[in-house]
Amino acid sequence: MIELRDIHKAYGHIEVLKGISLTARRGDVIALIGSSGSGKSTLLRCANLLEIPQRGDIVFNGDTVRWANKLKGRQPADKNQVRRMRTNLSMVFQQFNLWAHMTVLQNVTEAPVSVLKKDPQLAEQQGRELLEKVGIGDKCDQYPSQLSGGQQQRAAIARALAMEPAAMLFDEPTSALDPELEAEVVKVIKTLAAEGRTMLIVTHDMKMAFDVANHVIFLHDGVIVEQGTPEHVFQQTQSERLQQFLHATGTIG
């Protein structure tokens, strides 16, 4: 369903991604792990074109992103194609990024109404249901600043779900949270995985990666060092780099 082919991304002379390919099929939950600076977040952002890779292709449901050469380098040629992809790949950010001037419910309904042209009443009804589902049905009319981090991230997940996306992209969804708040978000993500949703999760949380993903990719220095099932990656580690990493994160040892 989503295929990234030979993605290269550099900022100036610093190469962040050095040719990465991955494929996510319907129902896949892929965890991207690796130390800070390994390029895992950049890869995720390339998937919905928040970052534009200098080389490589992105294919979504058989639809390959078309490129145009502009003054500032390679850019997507078709803005509508980009928007179509983005509405199908909802993103959950590390810092939640809820829109500060809207209530929680408005955060959830805004994009479906403005972008998908969904009927506002229907969007509101579904929004309330989604907020109920992530356990903050009572916070509908509060502003993001009045919520705890865990509640904000759950609202952000509800916002992403409201787009009824083909896949969800999680960019370190629990990194900004205190451990006790982390658990409530992990619980929601587990529920979504159990429902068979397609997800790409960039995370530091090895336990969640192990519990949730059916495929784990370990990135180091812009290349994929090791990948496979969680059991394979975490329990039958091949490379020294991954062993060091897992050791350092306290996952083994």
Partner: peptide
């Protein structure tokens, strides 16, 4: 970030 989020959700 607030603007990027909107773009990520397909806003023009």
């Amino acid at each position: 970030k607030q603007l990027e989020t909107a773009r990520a959700f397909g806003f023009t």
